[in-house]
């Protein structure tokens, strides 16, 4: 899967979890850019990403992602 495809999938996941079809994430997107992105929605986001890409995250690993780009890096390493 290319990075572009990962982002295409991530966009759909973010839109679903945050119930907002206008969301378009990019490498530099952070929690500050999306309303309602807090600890619990983050957990829901991680669970949805795990199911979608058939991967598993350690919460220690994901708690430090600085932006969506780092999230995509981790997905790329695991798929």
């Amino acid at each position: 899967m290319t990075r572009q495809e990962i982002f295409k999938n991530l966009n759909l996941i973010f839109q679903d979890v945050f119930d907002d079809e206008t969301i378009h994430v990019k490498e530099s997107t952070t929690a500050a850019d999306i309303e309602d992105w807090d600890s619990l929605t983050y957990v829901t986001l991680i669970i949805t990403i795990e199911k979608h890409f058939h991967i598993k995250f350690d919460m220690k690993e994901v708690s430090g992602f600085a932006n969506v780009g780092e999230m995509a890096d981790a997905i790329e390493r695991k798929i």
Binding site: S39, L40, V43, T44, I46, I47, M59, S63
Partner: peptide
């Protein structure tokens, strides 16, 4: 704080699932 936070996130994940 990281230990406390990461464990709580891990349990939140378990609870949601």
């Amino acid at each position: 704080y990281q230990i406390f936070n990461d464990d709580t996130l891990e349990e939140s994940k378990y609870f949601i699932e």
